[in-house]
Amino acid sequence: MSHFNALASSWWDVNGPQRILHKMNLLRMDFIHSTIRENLKLNQHAQSEDDLVYIPPYNVDLLPKPIRDNIVGEIETRRDDLLSNAKYNVLDVGCGGGILSESMARLPFIGSVKGIDLSTDVLEAAKLHKLKDPMLATKLQYELSTIEELPEDKKYNIITMFEVLEHVDYPARVLIEGLKRLDVGGWLFISTINRDFISWFTTIFMGEYLLGIVPVGTHNLEKYINQTEIKEWLNESHERKESFRVADTKGCVYLPAYGWTFTSCPDVGNYFMAIQRAK
């Protein structure tokens, strides 16, 4: 935990040592936003036949352009409508200095964000930085707490655990606590690191030893989790298999002088995963 306290002072300098994390946050937000947007149930609240949006069961790019644009335009407008009426509540587990929490709180379709962490120093940094933007004042709250300590009956539409699982001793327990608190239709977004040579090379050898982006000892290869292991774990129990589905998994990689980008291979290095509670 002391690693994170040491990071607190420079957490919000976007050109400072945490720049790589700020850049990663851009990709996180793209992943969260597009997953939510693309998985909206477009016709769920349609009152009549006329209200239905046509969702073609084939690739729209096969259609002539004006027709395609019309269909896509209609779908996008419906998504805008649905999101403009939404007020999702968010739990950000391991919020650190609040980089993700703040971004989530600024989204128009988010009603409230609770960020929890175990380090007082980074929470202090988060609370101080929150004051720098008046639009966060009522939407964003921070709390020094573990997820277990939060009431179980309080449900969330979105729970995020970014770069958390590789730092805890019993990731399955944290995952269970997260899944328990998901509302029906709600999303659990996680990110962690595959346990392989590439991950060791990028996050530990380069990140800690060579470039010194994070203090030595921040990561521990043994705690890394392969994405297939999470999927297997979800299928292990019948109850979990019934209630949750993995909607998307994306690998991501940091390219110097460019930033973070998605890869087509979620089995190597860092990855994001979106789990939805189906029922």
Binding site: H33, R106, K132
Partner: peptide, 12 residues
Amino acid sequence: GIDRGLDLGSTL
């Protein structure tokens, strides 16, 4: 920046 929930004044 709006889609990503960023502070619009940020250099990011």
